[in-house]
């Protein structure tokens, strides 16, 4: 019995070790590879569409390349593009426009969104609040090109509705006096005079993105505990003081988040100015030429891909510097939150 058992265990163990050793290796290999396999869909896409283009664009920025000449058409030019950029008037103009638009199209979004979100949260309840929030969110999810085309028509000099409204207002008694200058100024060329292009673009951007910020801020105000308001009330705070001293400091991380998105988004502004200037090299005197628009022109219209990639790296540096300044001054308070 024991012998049988022994022999059987022996043979079992013998077989077992033989068996165990081979699968062990495979299993270890499998264990090592499995995670890679699982993330490979992402990894492949990341390498193909992010890592490689990133590396290639650095490489390309040191070359002169007309893409229609094929890959052999590249000529190494070293830092020439970067040196050219420093003295390129259109590039500086476009960076100036970009900053101008980032500020003028950025600040109002928040100045409008914060009070509106506060009102939404404190005045409206339940379904009605959701309805209003959703309504204001619609511009954000509508195609930018479609919006820009509609505004293009609204701004149109001779037949645009904006000019027609201004004219109509000048006929209204009492307030008409305020618009008395309108008939003489007609037709106002919103999109074809260098002074008005940027404000016209900024308005479209504000209109489109304010709703998005309202959603962020609504979410922010909802996180503020009701106890704090009650306590403030007990202490005799007025409605304004509750907003200014309680609600606003509490949503600081949300302000920081929303501001960061606005800064990055506005510095990359492309579709709105492109459509509103009809793709005509940035409008009159390039007043609507943003940095992204310029690198598109250089790369796709002029076929100077090397120069365009150099411009894109300058734009990257520019965004990096501005966001880090923003992080430095607002980051600690914003991210940490004093809650």
């Amino acid at each position: 019995m024991s012998a049988i058992v022994e022999s059987s265990t022996d043979s079992l163990s013998a077989r077992g070790t033989v068996r165990r050793r081979a699968p062990d290796k495979r299993r270890v290999l499998k264990k090592r590879l499995m995670p890679w396999l699982f993330i490979s869909p992402y990894l492949v896409l990341f390498i193909m569409f992010t890592a490689f283009p990133l590396g290639f664009s650095i490489f390309l920025s040191f070359h002169e390349w007309n893409p229609t000449s094929g890959l052999d058409g590249m000529n190494f030019v070293g830092l020439t593009h970067y040196a050219d950029i420093i003295t390129d008037p259109w590039l500086w103009k476009s960076l100036y426009n970009t900053v101008w638009l980032a500020i003028v199209a950025g600040v109002p979004q928040h100045l409008i969104a914060i009070p509106v979100a506060y009102l939404l949260v404190s005045v409206f309840k339940g379904a009605l609040r959701h309805f209003y929030t959703a309504t204001m969110f619609i511009p954000f999810i509508t195609s930018t090109v479609a919006i820009s085309l509609i505004f293009y028509t609204i701004y149109s000099g001779n037949s645009g509705i904006l000019n027609q409204w201004l004219l109509a207002l000048s006929d209204v008694p009492v307030i008409g006096a305020l618009f008395a200058w309108v008939p003489d100024a007609m037709p106002i060329r919103w999109l074809s005079s260098s002074a008005l292009i940027k404000p016209a673009i900024a308005f479209v951007v504000v209109w489109k993105y304010t709703g998005f910020n309202i959603v962020i801020y609504s979410a922010g105000f909802l996180t503020v505990s009701k106890d704090l308001y009650d306590a403030a009330e007990v202490d005799g705070c007025s409605a304004w003081q509750k907003f200014w001293h309680v609600a606003l400091p509490m949503i600081r991380p949300f302000v920081f988040f929303a501001l960061t998105l606005t800064i990055i988004g506005n510095l990359q502004l492309f579709e709105e100015p492109f459509v509103l200037t009809a793709g005509d090299s940035g409008g009159v005197a390039q007043s609507g030429l943003t940095a992204s628009y310029y690198l598109y022109l250089a790369g796709w219209e002029w076929h100077q891909m090397g120069y365009a990639t150099a411009v894109s790296w300058i734009l990257f540096l520019f965004i990096a510097v501005i966001t880090s300044v923003h992080f430095y001054f607002n980051g600690r308070k914003g991210m940490g939150g004093d809650r």
């Binding site: 260098s194 005509d280 090299s281 409008g283 009159v284 005197a285 022109l297 002029w302």
Partner: peptide, 21 residues
């Protein structure tokens, strides 16, 4: 030609006509 057209006929010409340069 492509660059010159953008700079001269889309750029300079509009500055002359619309901005009085």
């Amino acid at each position: 030609d492509l660059i010159a057209e953008d700079v001269v006929l889309n750029g300079a010409l509009l500055e002359v006509l619309n901005d009085g340069k």
